[in-house]
Design a protein around this nucleic acid. Structure first.
Lengths: 337, 337
DNA sequence: TTGTACGCGTTATCAG
DNA sequence: CTGATAACGCGTACAA
């Protein structure tokens, strides 16, 4: 139970000044006699000395630590994003503090305060849409922000990385129209989110361009959390004139939606074609294997980390990176009966 | 670009001393005139002042921050564990720093150093088995350790939370023997891990007790990372006398294993019964729905956080919490043909 | 190489 | 009681 050693303990034990110890710690800072260096290293080992990050940060201001603020690690898309980002950051010697918001604006608030208090160098986030003011404050604290997937309008100085949401929805819709579908159910996230809106717009624009009538009953905006994807599917299937195809453009609701379809007697793809925005092992294992829109996660991660680190110190213009999603046609789509 | 305000800035702007500001910050520390308090709060707001965590920690030693060191967020089991732990911790006002090891001892080393440098109050981890010394050093730094799922033998002062691995394997094996199976393929993690070993032992013990011959060809120990679960399944199916049932007791390899089975012409459960250690939405969506061994994640999370926080400050005896897993019989198991 | 001021919030000690 | 002063914790960096 000897309390942890400090730099002064090390200096004393090695019979030299703390300045030298400090130099051994961050070598390159100044000259140290090889013999001395060895001795210091040995002493540090014996005392199992670890410099405290708190003390370092206190001196050196904004850290190279990154905050990662995700809506939900349970969603495999975010989980894989987290994995990639952590890996990417670590390979550059940067630590990541991960926090989750559960899509809750209050929790996001708290997290932002924490991040601000820690003076992290940057924050990579999938934001809810209601805390613009908090984001601004973070920016004023010299933190640079990278929004991934979604973004908050009005936070102008933030970077942004995402797939081309509008285009991806367009592509999915076109695929179905090409097959001959005209009644297409569309399940997206809330219109208050940029992704929900962009995807819905892409879908509607395509319908219009291809001369397919829009039936607002076929458009479902459901929250990310919860199981409302199932309810949406239920309503679609119970319509007097049900859709012959469904696009689930809300990644978080894919599992619930698919489960609901499976519980019904509807056959995929004979009675119903299905496209989901989700890149997950199980979409391939499902019977039939699902046609999906895949987000290139590793690429998004690497760009995000790039941006978050690039602007630490030298603040430049905000960047926006748009990546193409990959449309993978498998067995869940075919021409309507 | 005015650099972030400090406590002294606030004091100056409010026309008082920093001591008072500090008291307003952590109220209860000392008396402050209500009028003064209001003024201070207002000034803090205007300057968008945030006390720096680094400075606070420097003074107060070991933090209430928890480190969470997981093997792989991409594995849904760990992802959900992370989610639960973060939620649980947050509800007690504790922050969580998440790091991942990718099952790599070197990365784990680094992470442990980082955590040591940050003087986190506790670490919850699913360890690899090779860094006993590093764990010891962390403990000497007054960090308390909670191993979840797996643990490291030889690190005596650490707490431990897990399901009863031996029993869960026994239960799965017994279910199959009861159905009439005698050739059972068993895919587990490396024998160097406590979970891999305990589950294998449970399996073997049950075979012995029920008088079923052991065929070492039916026992596969595969790593957690990678896709070797598929290879293992391949070998099992290609045996001269293939198994009539398979237990995948390696959560990380479930998806790969199932995919491999699906690619073959083998029918489940007619030709092959299947039990997987995995609690995941898709196991229910699969055709047929899979019989699973479910780990009660929320409970494990809550116990872990409890233990990690309980011993902060007052170090007591190490605890070991064993939770019963839940065996869910669905449609992927039946009597052999 | 060494001595030492510095960064910033906390808290014990003191004065009003 | 309210508010002020100063020392402290620990690593960094510059002047000596």
């Amino acid at each position: 139970m000897p309390k942890p050693a400090t730099i002064r303990d090390v200096a004393a034990a090695a019979g030299i000044s703390i300045a030298v110890v400090s130099r051994v710690l961050n070598d390159g800072t100044g000259p140290v006699a090889p013999a001395t260096r060895q001795r210091v290293l040995k002493v540090m080992e014996e005392l199992s000395y670890r410099p405290r990050t708190a003390a370092r940060e206190l001196k050196s201001g904004p850290t190279t630590t990154l905050g990662l603020l995700l809506a939900d690690v349970t969603n495999p898309f975010f989980a894989r994003l987290a994995d990639s980002i952590v890996r990417e950051a670590r390979s550059r010697g940067v630590q990541v503090i991960l926090m989750t918001t559960q899509e809750d604006a209050r929790l996001e608030q708290d997290a932002l305060d924490t991040l601000a208090a820690r003076r992290v160098g940057g924050v990579i986030a999938t934001p809810t849409s209601t805390n613009a003011a908090s984001w601004q404050r973070l920016i004023e604290l010299d933190t640079n922000i990278v929004f991934v997937d979604r973004y908050v309008e009005g936070v102008v100085e933030a970077d942004h990385v995402s797939i081309d949401n509008e285009r991806s929805a367009r592509q999915a819709t076109e695929h179905l129209i090409d097959l001959g579908h005209t009644r297409i159910g569309f399940i997206s996230g809330p219109l208050s989110t940029t992704t929900g809106r962009a995807r819905t717009e892409g879908h509607l624009a395509t319908l219009a361009r291809r001369g397919v009538a829009v039936d607002s009953q076929l458009l479902c905006n459901v929250p990310f959390r919860g199981d409302q994807g199932a309810d949406a599917v239920g309503s679609l299937l119970n319509l007097a004139e049900p859709p012959t195809a469904i696009i689930v453009a809300n990644t978080a609701q894919v599992a619930a939606s698919v489960r609901r379809i499976r519980q019904s007697s509807i056959r995929v793809p004979e009675d119903l074609s299905l496209i989901v925005f989700d890149d997950n092992p199980w979409t391939e294992l499902f019977t039939p294997s699902l046609t999906i829109m895949r987000q290139p996660i590793a690429m998004m991660a690497s760009h995000s980390v790039d941006l978050a680190l690039a602007r630490i110190g030298g603040s430049s213009e905000p960047h926006s990176v748009v990546i193409e999603a990959e449309f993978v046609v498998r067995s869940s789509t075919q021409a309507p009966a």
